[in-house]
């Protein structure tokens, strides 16, 4: 547990000290939100997807940035799972901080039918965004490719009709579903199916990113310890 917490501590410190990047990432949801400020539903959707983008991007950059040091940490005695869990914990903590900030912005600025559902939706968006960024960071060669992929995912999420079944394969489908419930009421969206989708997607992404990390940091077969 100590090793996981130390990894989380180091990741969080490094993330919070990148003030320039962090500031720009925090600006994304605000720009999205202000662009649709006069339409409550759209404003909350855009702000939430902006939070999803910012948190995923932070996770992506953190993962790519850690590629050189993680094998050395594994060699020094860390287990791959400890490195993965430490990074995940740090990013969840930072992401929940961002979502709390935007929850205040949205709740102060908009009139909502179910304000508490927005709190849940922003937390779930963060929960999905962190392992999504971790997975992208683990599979792309550089952060530029990861950022382009992430923009494609968020863009598709914005333009695709959430009523279509195919929209459910997108990771932030739950975000739009719960916001519809929060803004328009129970008849329009479902809190339960949104939450279930978010948890399912989170689980899938966590397992996938954990497996990729474990594979990358695995002990090679040619090496034996006597």
């Amino acid at each position: 547990m100590t090793a996981t917490l130390r990894m989380a501590d180091a990741t969080l410190r490094e993330l919070l000290r990148r003030r320039g990047v962090l500031g720009l990432l925090l600006l994304v949801p605000l720009v999205f939100y202000l662009g649709r400020y006069d339409q409550t539903g759209q404003a909350v959707r855009f702000a939430s997807l902006g939070v999803g983008f910012a948190v995923s991007a932070a996770a992506l950059f953190s993962t790519v940035g850690g590629r050189e040091i993680e094998p050395l940490l594994a060699l020094s005695g860390f287990r791959p799972l400890q490195l993965f869990a430490g990074r995940l914990l740090a990013l969840l903590a930072a992401g929940l901080g961002v979502s709390a900030l935007y929850a205040v912005v949205v709740l102060v600025g908009q009139d909502l039918a179910h304000p508490r559902a927005v709190l849940l939706e922003l937390a779930l968006t963060t929960l999905v965004a962190v392992p999504l960024g971790l997975l992208l960071g683990a599979v792309v060669p550089r952060d530029m490719e990861g950022a382009l992929l992430l923009i494609s995912v968020i863009g598709a999420q914005m333009v695709m009709d959430p009523a279509k079944d195919s929209a459910k394969v997108l990771p932030f489908w739950s975000t739009r579903e719960i916001i519809t419930y929060a803004v328009d009421g129970a008849g329009a969206g479902s809190l339960g199916s949104g939450a279930a989708h978010a948890l399912g997607v989170t689980l899938l992404l966590m397992v996938a990113s954990g497996c990729v990390t474990a594979g990358r940091l695995r002990r090679r077969r040619h090496l034996q310890f006597a």
Binding site: P71, L75, R219, R220, R221, H222, L223, Q224, F225, A226
Partner: peptide, 13 residues
């Protein structure tokens, strides 16, 4: 053990 060889083995004590 950071990369794999095409052939060969390494033993570390």
């Amino acid at each position: 053990g950071l990369i794999s060889p095409d052939k060969g083995r390494v033993t570390v004590s």
